[in-house]
Computed example of a mutant assay.
Amino acid sequence: MTMLLPDAFSALAHLVDEWAIEDGHQRYLKRVSCTMDKILAFYNEVFPHAENAVAYINQYDYQQALPPDVANLRNLMYSLITVSLAVELWGQPRVKHSANTILTRLS
């Protein structure tokens, strides 16, 4: 059976299905569609593990594909970064005074 997260972070495994989002735009959409209560619950649970998670992820060579459990951990950290703006700066899921604007990146 494949582990969702490395053993040291197994307490966060229940968050993987909802928050280990690989695509940056999808992470953004998740943030702006959540309530602050949901964002704060995620932030408060994951933030205490962030420093150790980053150190763990940094053991891997980014030129190689990450194992699935480590990729999930990385994606949780990316989601943490995305929601941290709502928690630490704005106190709401969206940028202040942005109404219902959704940012889309064109390439």
Rank of each mutant, 00 (worst) to 15 (best):
Glu45Pro: 00
Asp69His: 11
Thr101His: 12
Leu66Cys: 05
Asn72Ala: 07
Ala99Tyr: 14
Gly24Val: 14
Val46Tyr: 08
Ser10Leu: 09
Phe42Asp: 02
Gln59Phe: 07
Ser33Val: 04
Val95Phe: 13
Arg74Cys: 07
Ile102Leu: 09
Pro68Tyr: 04
Asn52Trp: 05
Leu29Val: 00
Gln92Pro: 04
Thr104Asp: 13
Ser79Ile: 01
Leu76Gln: 02
Pro48His: 01
Asp7Leu: 11
Phe9Met: 00
Thr35Ala: 14
Asp37His: 03
His25Ile: 09
Glu88Ala: 09
Val95Trp: 08
Tyr60Asp: 05
Gln64Glu: 15
Phe47Ile: 10
Phe42Gly: 02
Val83Cys: 03
Asp7Ala: 12
Asp17Asn: 15
Tyr43His: 14
Ser10Lys: 09
Val95Ile: 14
Pro6His: 03
Asp23His: 08
Asp69Val: 06
Asn72Asp: 04
Val32Thr: 07
Arg31Ala: 10
Gly24Ser: 12
Gly91Glu: 10
Leu5Val: 07
Pro48Trp: 04
Asn52Cys: 03
Gln63Ile: 04
Tyr62His: 11
Ser33Pro: 08
Tyr78Asn: 13
His97Glu: 14
Gln92Phe: 07
Ala50Ile: 04
Ala53Asn: 00
Lys38Leu: 08
Leu66Val: 08
Ala86Val: 01
Trp19Asp: 06
Gly91Gln: 13
His49Val: 03
Asp37Ser: 08
Leu4Thr: 05
Leu66Tyr: 05
Asp61Leu: 06
Phe42Leu: 02
Lys30Tyr: 12
Leu76Asn: 00
Met36Glu: 05
Asn72Ser: 06
Glu22Val: 09
Glu51Thr: 12
Asp61Tyr: 10
Leu106Lys: 04
Ile39Ala: 07
His49Leu: 07
Asp61Trp: 07
Ala99Ile: 07
Val46Lys: 01
Met36Asp: 05
Pro68Lys: 01
Ala20Phe: 08
Tyr43Met: 00
Trp90Ile: 02
Leu4Phe: 10
Glu22Lys: 12
Ala8Lys: 13
Asn72Gln: 05
Thr2Cys: 08
Ala41Met: 11
Lys96Ile: 11
Ser10Gln: 13
Leu15Thr: 05
His97Ala: 08
